[in-house]
């Protein structure tokens, strides 16, 4: 029999859930609201919540001062480019680790993950110098390669856990059916792991989209994505909260929409294998 839950308890948990949800969402809401205020109202005290003079002035100024679309395009190229490149490397790697493990597989996986624990700033100078000498600064290729390497451990780990869920027998059956490794991955493994592959892709696109350290340090204009677009509205000319908010809203809008549209995939991907 199902556990009986009293109506009061349901009401309580509903209130708590909505409160937590609202707290998490509040900074984004505040940013969006601020982007429609004048600079003066943006930092008025007490802060105005909804009753202020709504204006699109900030968006006009932001678009005038810097090219939003160029930055957005760079974000798309860098995030999707780096994740697709990482997929090309990670799918065969995860296949090998999941279905043909050796004694060192576990160690290799842990070592890969441990590289994520090193602070990026620790290698900023050498990476910067190498990129400068190779002429990769502010280039799509350079940033795609770097973001790909930065996310590769996570991509391999995620794919590895999804692949582990797939019964080995099915791959063996395909081998008995006379299929080589390449076609086994494309025609048998990939279709079965599709939900996992999709959520890995999505999550890492989000991570790459939001990545700010390398994109800010290694780009100036040509390859600068939306992170650089936001950053350009801080400090030098003083803080312009409203314009900064307008820039931020524009920068996070695409990824917000992507997340909204694919939330089922994302959640499914993150809990894949947790329940049978």
């Amino acid at each position: 029999m199902a556990r009986r839950v009293s109506p009061a308890r349901i009401a309580l948990t509903t209130v708590v859930a909505w409160t937590v949800g609202f707290v998490i969402f509040f900074p984004i809401l505040w940013t969006v609201l601020t982007s429609f205020k004048t600079e003066l109202e943006a930092f008025s005290i007490p802060p105005k919540f909804l009753f202020f003079k709504w204006t699109l002035e900030n968006y006009r100024l932001v678009q005038e001062r810097s090219d939003y679309l160029a930055h957005a395009w760079n974000s798309v190229v860098l995030s999707f480019g780096s994740v697709l490149l990482a997929m090309l490397i990670a799918v065969p790697a995860a296949w090998a680790m999941a279905f043909a493990p050796t004694e060192r597989t576990r160690g290799t996986l842990l070592w890969m993950l441990s590289t994520k624990m090193m602070p990026s700033v620790g290698v900023l100078v050498p990476v910067y110098l190498i990129y400068r000498d190779l002429g990769l600064l502010d280039s799509h290729i350079g940033l795609i390669a770097l973001l790909c390497l930065a996310n590769l451990p996570i991509v391999v780990w995620m794919l590895f856990t999804y692949f582990k869920e797939i019964p080995k027998g099915i791959l063996e059956a395909s081998r008995m059916d006379g299929i080589g490794t390449g076609r086994e991955i494309v025609f048998v493994l990939a279709p079965m792991a599709l939900p996992g592959i999709a959520s890995t892709l999505l999550l890492n696109v989000v991570l790459a989209w939001n990545e700010a350290f390398w994109t800010l340090n290694l780009t100036t204009s040509k390859a600068a994505p939306l992170t650089a677009f936001i950053a350009s509205y801080s400090s030098p000319e003083g803080l312009f909260w409203a314009k900064l908010s307008a820039a931020s809203t524009l920068a996070i809008a695409p990824i917000l929409v992507l997340g909204w549209l694919t939330q089922r995939q994302l959640v499914r991907g993150l809990t894949f294998g947790a329940v049978k």
């Binding site: 027998g169 099915i170 059956a173 395909s174 081998r175 008995m176 059916d177 279709p191």
Partner: peptide
């Protein structure tokens, strides 16, 4: 396996889902 000309039936059926 592919080059041996054998076919196998598995306990778990191992069908392509």
């Amino acid at each position: 396996p592919a080059k041996r000309g054998l076919a196998m039936v598995f306990q778990s059926y191992a069908l392509y889902p």
